[in-house]
Design a protein around this nucleic acid. Structure first.
Length: 793
DNA sequence: GCGCTGTGGGTACC
DNA sequence: ACTGGTACCCACAGCGC
C-alpha cells in the first residue's frame, strides 16, 4: 500500500542483527502510525589498504554487508575512502574503533536523515505492507498505534499543513525533592480535554478522584494511552514532573508504561536529565525557551509565570500557600486543583505559541524536535553542519575524546572584543551603528576555520600571539556560514513582505545558528574546534571596529562609545543625511561581506564613571530615542540582584535626566525617596534582594549573604537548590560591625530593615555616579551634610 | 582591630 | 561540560601592620 506520512518521533531497533529505523507520526487520515524501514549503518576508513582485512573481520558473528570506495573530502582535502556498511549498528563502534573509522559517532537517526535527505516534519510518501503480529520481526508491530507499516520505499511527499496532537501536563507534590513525598494531583490538557487526577475529592467538574496515589498514576498512564498524543509537554518536566512520576511509580510498584511499546521513559544524563518516551515526543518547554528565546526575553527568571505572561499574556492562578500538614479546607483544595489545571492550560498555550519556532528550528537544523529542544546551541550548530556536509562531499570529523576535551578546557583564553573607554557625561544627538552579524561575517570574509588554517604563509594574517594564516581558498565551514547568512537575509526580507510566524521563525532560526557559529569554533567539545579560528575572528573583528571608529572620526564624527560590533558617534552640527552618506562611504570600503548598518538615532545618552576610579564605566549607559523610549544597558536598573527600590529609583532618575536634559527634577525625586526610606516609609517588598544559587551550597568557598540564606532555607525545608533564586533583605542589628550575611533575613522573617545599609549600599551606588556627571555629591545629601544648601534635611 | 587588596560570585553586554 | 570573551560591582577572605 501507499500512503502519505509525517514523521515526528524517531527511534531505532535491532531485530535479528538487522537495524530498523522506527518513525512515529501521522498518516493523511490523521491516524497515528509507525513506519519501519531497514537501515544499514556505515563508517568510513581512509586507509584503502585495510579493505581486505575489514572484509574478513567478524564481530559478534557479523561481517560487513558491503564496502564501497568513494572519492571524498576530509577537512577540505581530497581523500579516497572506504565506506563500510553494516546491517546492525550495535557492533558499529567496535568495528570502527578497530580501524580508526570515521562517522561512527554520529547518531543513527541523524545518519538516516542525512542519507535519505529527509527532514523531520516533512511529509513522506511511503510504500510498504502493514504488519500484523509479525513473528518474523519479533512482534515489533505490537504497539499502541493505529497500525505499523514496514516500508519498501520512502520518498519525499507533498508538503501540507500539520497540527500535532499535544497534551500538556503538570503535577503537584508534597515535597520538592524528587520522589520524596506523594504526587497530589496531575493535570492534563489537550484540545477539548481537561482533567485533574487526584485522590482527594473536589467538586470541580474536571477533577477525577481516585482511591489513592497508585490508582491515580494508573489513570494517568491510561489517559495518555487513550489520548495518544504526538507530543507530551511540560514546563521543567525533564527536571521535575517526569522524574517525579518515575520515582512515585517505582514506589507504588507500577510500571510507568508511557511508551507506545509500553516501555518506561528513558532518562539521559546530561547537565540536567532529559526524559524520552518511545513514540511520543516529550518536550520540556523550558529547555526550548532557554535555547531559542531567553536572549530576547525581558523576564528575569524563566519561570512559567514570567515567561507565559511575557509571551502569551497569561498568568498562573494566584493561590495562597497551602500548608499540607494542617487541615485543608474544601475551598482551598478546589483552588489547588484549579491552580494545577491552569498550569497545564498555560503550558499548552505556550506550546502552541512556540510551535512554529520548534517546527522551523527542526526543519532548518534537520534534527527531530526531541533533539533540537535539548543539548544547547553548540549541538544545534554541529547538527546543522553534519546535515549539510554532503554539499561539500565531506566526511565528518570525529568528536574529541575525553583527553582531548580536558586539554582543550585547560587552554588559555584568547583576546576577545574591543570595548571603547567612554568619557562620562550627558550627550545630545547620538547616532548608533552596528556591524550585521559581525562574527559570522568575519568568519566568512576572512575564511576562518579548522580546515582553512594554513601552515604556509598566506595573505590572511591574524596576529594572535604570533601570526596565524588562513588559506584564501574558501573552506566548507565559512562557506556553510555564508549560506546561513544569505538564507537569514532572504527569509527576513520575505517576512517583511509577508509577515507570518513561520517566516519569522525560520529567519530567527538561521540567525541563532549564525550567531552561535563563532562560539562553536572556540567550544572545547566541538568536532570542528579551532581556537586559532576563534581568536582570529575576534582579532579581525577588533581591527574592523577600530578602523570604522577612525573612519567616522576622520569624517568629523566624534566617537563616544563602542562595544564589539557597535559604534556611537555624536551628530553635533551634522545632519542625519550626512551620517547616512558617510555610512555608505565606509561600507563601500569594507572587505567581503562585512556590513555596517544604522541602528538608530538618539536624542540623548548618558555615560557615568566606574565606582572605583574616575574614568568612564564600560557596558553601562542609558539612551533616549526620539519617541522618548529609554534604552538602558548595564545599569543597576537592569540587574536583578539589586532591590526594586534602587532599580526603580535609578530608572526614574535616568528617565528624568534624559527627558529633560538636566538633573533638576531627578534630584528632587531622589531627595523624596531618600527621605521616605529615612522615615521607613518604603515597604519591605521594595527592598528584597534576589540572587541566584549557581551551584550546590556545599561548593561555595565564599559564604555570601545569599548562601547563608540558602542554608537557612534548607534547614526550614524550603527549596534552595542549584538554580534557585534566593530572596532576602538586610535587617538592623545591635552589633554595628556585624557582617552583611549576619544581618540577612528571609523576606518573611521578623525584623526591621537596616535603613543605613539600604542608603549606603543600595541607593547610593545606584545614583551616585549619575549625579556626579552634574557635579552633585549624593553622599553628602544622604549623610545629611550641607543641609542648608539642599534644604529638606 | 584596621585598612587595603585580592578573590569569588553573580549578572550584564555583545 | 554542553557556544565565546569583557566588564561591572558586591561581600568576604586574607594579608600586613
Amino acid at each position: 500500500m501507499k500512503l502519505q506520512f509525517i514523521p515526528i518521533d524517531f527511534d531505532s531497533i535491532d531485530i535479528n542483527n538487522q537495524t530498523y529505523i522506527q518513525m512515529f507520526g501521522r498518516d493523511e487520515n490523521n491516524k497515528k502510525i509507525c513506519v519501519i524501514e531497514k537501515f544499514n549503518d556505515w563508517f568510513y576508513v581512509t586507509n584503502l589498504k585495510l579493505k581486505k582485512k575489514i572484509e574478513k573481520t567478524k564481530i559478534e558473528g557479523i561481517s560487513p554487508l558491503k564496502i564501497e570506495i568513494e572519492n571524498k573530502n576530509y577537512l577540505g582535502k581530497k581523500v579516497k575512502a572506504l565506506k563500510i556498511y553494516l546491517q546492525s549498528s550495535k557492533i558499529l563502534n567496535k568495528f570502527s574503533e578497530k580501524f580508526n573509522g570515521l562517522e561512527s559517532d554520529i547518531n543513527i537517526i541523524t545518519k538516516y536523515l542525512i542519507e535519505k535527505k529527509f527532514s523531520p516534519l516533512n511529509w513522506l510518501e511511503v510504500e510498504g505492507e502493514i504488519l500484523n503480529n509479525s513473528e518474523e520481526l519479533r512482534g515489533v508491530d505490537r504497539m499502541n498505534v493505529d497500525y505499523v507499516i514496514l516500508a519498501d520505499s520512502i520518498k519525499l511527499g507533498k508538503n501540507k499543513k500539520f497540527k500535532p496532537k499535544v497534551l500538556a501536563y503538570d503535577i503537584e507534590t508534597e515535597e520538592f525533592e524528587i520522589g520524596k513525598g506523594k504526587i497530589l494531583m496531575i493535570s492534563l490538557v489537550g484540545e477539548n480535554f481537561k482533567k485533574v487526577l487526584t485522590f482527594k475529592p473536589s467538586k470541580k467538574n474536571y477533577v477525577e478522584c481516585f482511591k489513592n496515589e497508585e490508582e491515580m498514576l494508573k489513570a494517568f498512564i491510561k489517559y495518555i494511552k487513550e489520548y495518544s498524543p504526538d507530543i507530551l509537554t511540560g514546563y521543567f518536566s525533564d527536571g521535575f514532573d517526569l522524574p517525579y512520576l518515575r520515582a512515585r511509580a517505582e514506589k507504588n510498584k507500577i510500571k510507568l508504561s508511557l511508551g507506545v511499546d509500553n516501555s518506561i521513559p528513558k532518562f539521559k544524563r546530561g547537565r540536567v536529565l532529559s526524559g524520552k518516551i518511545k513514540g511520543i515526543v516529550h518536550i520540556d518547554l523550558l529547555k526550548f525557551i532557554q535555547i531559542a528565546y531567553s536572549q530576547y526575553l525581558q523576564s528575569e527568571t524563566l519561570s512559567l509565570n514570567e515567561v507565559a505572561s511575557e509571551l502569551i499574556n497569561e498568568k498562573k492562578k494566584d493561590i495562597s500557600h497551602i500548608d499540607l500538614n494542617s487541615k485543608v479546607s474544601k475551598k482551598q483544595w478546589d483552588d489547588f486543583c484549579e491552580y494545577n489545571l491552569q498550569d497545564s492550560i498555560i503550558t499548552e498555550k505556550l506550546f502552541r505559541k512556540v510551535w512554529p519556532d520548534i517546527l522551523e528550528f527542526s526543519k532548518v537544523i534537520g534534527e527531530p524536535i526531541y533533539e533540537i529542544t535539548r543539548g544547547g546551541m553548540s549541538q544545534n550548530v554541529e547538527n546543522y553542519i553534519l546535515h549539510n556536509l554532503y554539499k561539500f562531499n565531506e566526511i565528518a570529523k570525529l568528536k574529541p575524546n575525553h583527553d582531548e576535551i580536558s586539554s582543550r578546557i585547560k587552554r588559555e583564553k584568547y583576546e576577545g572584543a574591543f570595548v571603547f573607554q567612554p568619557t562620562p557625561g550627558l550627550y545630545e544627538n547620538l547616532c548608533f551603528f552596528d556591524f550585521t552579524s559581525m562574527y559570522a561575517s568575519t568568519i566568512v570574509t576572512y575564511n576562518l576555520s579548522l580546515s582553512t588554517l594554513s601552515k604556509k604563509p598566506t595573505k590572511i594574517i591574524a596576529d594572535i600571539n604570533g601570526k596565524k594564516y588562513f588559506s584564501e581558498k574558501s573552506g566548507f565551514f565559512p562557506e556553510l556560514l555564508k549560506q546561513i547568512i544569505e538564507k537569514r537575509k532572504e527569509f527576513k526580507k520575505q517576512y517583511k513582505d509577508n509577515p507570518n510566524p513561520l517566516l519569522k521563525a525560520r529567519s530567527n532560526a538561521f540567525k541563532l545558528i549564525a550567531n552561535a557559529a563563532y562560539g562553536y569554533q572556540g567550544f572545547f567539545a566541538a568536532r570542528y574546534y579551532c581556537l586559532e579560528a576563534a581568536a582570529a575572528t575576534a582579532y579581525f573583528a577588533r581591527e574592523s571596529i577600530k578602523k570604522a571608529i577612525k573612519d567616522f572620526e576622520k569624517k568629523g564624527f566624534k566617537p563616544v562609545y563602542s562595544d564589539t560590533d557597535s559604534i556611537a558617534v555624536l551628530l553635533e552640527n551634522k545632519s542625519k543625511k550626512q551620517a547616512l552618506l558617510i555610512l555608505k562611504e565606509i561600507n563601500k570600503k569594507l572587505p567581503g561581506i562585512m556590513e555596517l548598518e544604522l541602528e538608530d538615532f538618539y536624542k540623548r545618552g548618558i555615560w557615568v564613571t566606574k565606582r572605583t576610579g574616575d574614568f568612564g564605566a564600560k557596558k553601562k549607559y542609558a539612551l533616549i530615542d526620539e519617541k522618548n523610549n529609554l534604552k538602558i544597558r548595564g545599569f543597576e536598573t537592569v540587574r536583578r540582584d539589586w532591590c526594586r527600590l534602587s532599580r526603580e529609583l535609578q530608572n526614574k532618575i535616568l528617565e528624568l535626566i534624559l527627558k529633560n536634559g538636566n538633573e533638576k527634577k531627578a534630584l528632587e525625586y531622589a531627595k523624596e525617596i531618600i527621605l521616605k526610606i529615612k522615615k521607613r516609609q518604603i515597604p519591605l517588598k521594595q527592598l528584597i534582594i534576589r540572587t541566584q544559587l549557581k551551584k550546590p551550597i556545599e561548593e561555595y568557598k565564599a559564604i555570601t549573604p545569599h548562601v547563608t540564606i540558602a542554608k537557612k532555607m534548607k534547614e526550614k525545608g524550603l527549596p534552595a537548590n542549584m538554580g534557585s533564586l534566593i530572596q532576602y533583605y538586610i535587617a538592623e542589628s545591635k552589633n554595628k560591625k556585624a557582617l552583611v550575611r549576619e544581618r540577612a533575613k528571609l523576606p518573611d522573617e521578623k525584623g526591621e530593615y537596616d535603613i543605613n545599609y539600604y542608603l549606603k549600599h543600595q541607593i547610593l551606588p545606584a545614583i551616585e555616579n549619575i549625579f556626579e556627571v552634574f557635579k552633585i555629591n549624593i553622599n553628602e545629601l544622604i549623610e545629611g551634610k550641607k543641609q542648608t544648601c539642599l534644604g529638606d534635611f
